[in-house]
């Protein structure tokens, strides 16, 4: 496969369950080879619907879905042979052991018998013996579900809310496993979550969906740049009207307490301070208001609600 080729390309995707309710509107999403892509959005924003369409669990109504450069509907089996997935909660047969659960799908995926032991070792479940999956902890179930998704050495892994319900230890463990699989095995990953803090520590690229629309798509760096652009400096001086005039090139915004100015970095804050003092204004308050990625996510999703 060519480097930097799009593994997933969704264009103009729309979906509705009923005519009155649009679940997805004009979704455009692209995941490049080797990306660890975080698909972020609050609950009910359309993440699972998008992933279900990607895996053919729902039939596409409008738009196009290409995976590995192939149209999905026409190449469903070829695409699924190269894709591993975990949709919502772990899908396991409770009455079967870890090994038996993998055996159910081994032939379906055309994997060799020894691969079962390999993936169990990879997720740290090689010693579960005759213990039934129904008696596993949620973390173990999640890891077994990932082992199942890895059985056929997929090139693409789609994980829907993989850390849901896990304790902090389980989350860290799973995060490390995901990073390792992406780095060591070169698997392209699409991971959905409703928590930015959870995915920002592992993903390289992000897509933010809200109420069925994509609000942002790009690298984590681009999101940080976007975050900087959203930072404001709160100013209160001895003459706010005069300060507005002096700082007019910064496009200030008048508020009840003074003014708000977008800023890039602390050098710019120092420059603004010196401009005000040079013009003999008393600076009472100079407060940078930086937005964390989490706040930015909240802002992005709340301003569109």
């Amino acid at each position: 496969m060519m480097p930097n080729s799009a593994v997933i390309r969704i264009s103009g995707l729309h979906y509705h369950y009923s005519r009155e309710e649009n679940i997805l509107s004009d979704i455009n999403l692209q995941v490049e080879q080797g990306n660890l892509y975080g698909f972020l959005g609050p609950n009910g924003s359309g993440k699972t619907t998008t992933l279900s369409l990607l895996l053919g669990l729902l039939k596409k109504q409008k738009g196009s879905i290409e995976i590995f450069g192939q149209e999905f509907q026409a190449n469903r089996l070829n695409i699924l042979k190269r894709t591993g997935s975990l949709i919502e909660s772990p899908s396991l047969y409770r009455q079967l052991t870890a090994r038996e659960n993998l055996e159910v799908y081994r032939s379906v995926y055309g994997a060799k018998k020894e691969r079962v032991g390999e993936v169990l070792k990879l997720v740290g479940l090689e010693d579960t013996g005759t213990k039934k999956a129904g008696n596993f902890s949620l973390g173990m179930k999640q890891r077994l579900a990932i082992a199942l998704a890895l059985l056929h050495r997929p090139e693409l892994l789609i994980l829907d809310e993989p850390t849901n319900g896990l304790d902090p230890g389980g989350i860290v463990e799973l995060r490390e496993l995901i990073k390792r699989l992406n780095k060591d095995e070169g698997i392209t990953m699409l991971i959905s979550s409703h928590l930015l803090s959870e995915v920002e520590r592992m993903v390289s690229h992000l897509g933010i969906i809200f109420k069925g629309r994509m609000l942002f798509q790009g690298s984590l760096e681009e999101l940080r740049l976007f975050q900087q652009k959203q930072s404001r400096l709160k100013i209160h001086s001895s003459d706010n009207e005069a300060a507005m005039d002096i700082l007019k090139d910064y496009h200030p915004e008048k508020t009840m307490e003074g003014l708000l100015i977008p800023f890039r970095d602390y050098q710019e804050v120092a420059l603004i301070n010196s401009l005000l003092t040079k013009n003999r204004l008393g600076v009472y308050l100079l407060q940078p208001q930086e937005r964390s990625l989490e706040q930015l996510f909240m802002d992005l999703t709340s301003t569109h609600s």
Partner: peptide, 16 residues
């Protein structure tokens, strides 16, 4: 077996 274990989605997204 599929309903109780919530495995329909896994089954339907397997290459069969």
């Amino acid at each position: 077996i599929e309903y109780r274990n919530n495995t329909w989605k896994q089954l339907m997204s397997s290459p069969q």
